[in-house]
Write a protein that binds this DNA or RNA. Structure first.
Lengths: 122, 122
DNA sequence: AGATGAGTTCGATAGATATCGAACCCTTCG
DNA sequence: CGAAGGGTTCGATATCTATCGAACTCATCT
């Protein structure tokens, strides 16, 4: 279990934190993409823009991945120079039974809905 | 169904909005309190501070109630000079199966955890 | 009518947070 | 070694939002 990056213990996670992490269309898209990936292999971050249908800068993607990780939703594994994401399914199901299932079962929404778009400046 | 206040149609609600509405400890407390109230009578707003264990100003309470209402989670009914809240259970279950159940089943967290406390100024 | 009680609305404030580009760190590959 | 690929971190920016008190509205009660 030697983590190279920080992962919180599931028991420490308040529901509101987890909901807040999920309450962003971009992160929902990421979670959906990770959820359909092979649970053992995980999903390579490189594939996220494509798999999740996101057109965000590298730094913003990194930001979202960090939120998901620090809120206990995903686990990041480092493989050489790249990283893969996987859902912490069992753990989440243990602490918040039904929450992930309900989230994934809900109708998907187009990314961009209700997001904080930064005013597409000149 | 003549509403005196605005209530969105369930079909219009993106998941992220609903999650955002739930992602606040104070609002979670409100939802829990409303959920245990009689579904027909609803919960009188006056009782919220007591039932939900919240010490917030009137205006802040009003704000949270508005968010919950506008995000389709509660329905506000006006009775004379006071109002009651009820969960839009069936509707929510229809659009987001399992979500409310999972939310209510999750371990309750102390209000004040991870909330935006405004610096308790001098 | 006047006072009281229940809530909303407004304006201000402090603190998140979503987004980006630039600079930076590793690992891999030529 | 040097370049390229994959990600993180930093700083800036704009927006959002949780909170409060004060002023207001409407219904009820005396």
């Amino acid at each position: 279990m030697s983590d190279e990056v920080f992962h919180p213990a599931i028991e420490d996670l308040p529901l509101s934190k987890v909901l807040a992490a999920l309450a962003d269309p971009a992160r929902l898209a990421i979670v959906r993409a990770v959820a359909v990936a092979d649970p053992d292999d995980g999903l390579a971050c490189t594939l996220l823009p494509e798999q999740a249908g996101l057109r965000l800068s590298k730094s913003t993607m990194s930001h979202h991945q960090r939120i998901l990780r620090e809120c206990g939703i995903t686990r990041t594994r480092i493989v050489g120079s790249r990283r893969t994401l996987r859902l912490r399914r069992e753990e989440l199901d243990r602490r918040f039974p039904g929450l992930i299932a309900a989230t994934l079962a809900a109708p998907a929404e187009p990314v961009g809905t209700s997001a904080r778009r930064p005013a597409a400046s000149a």
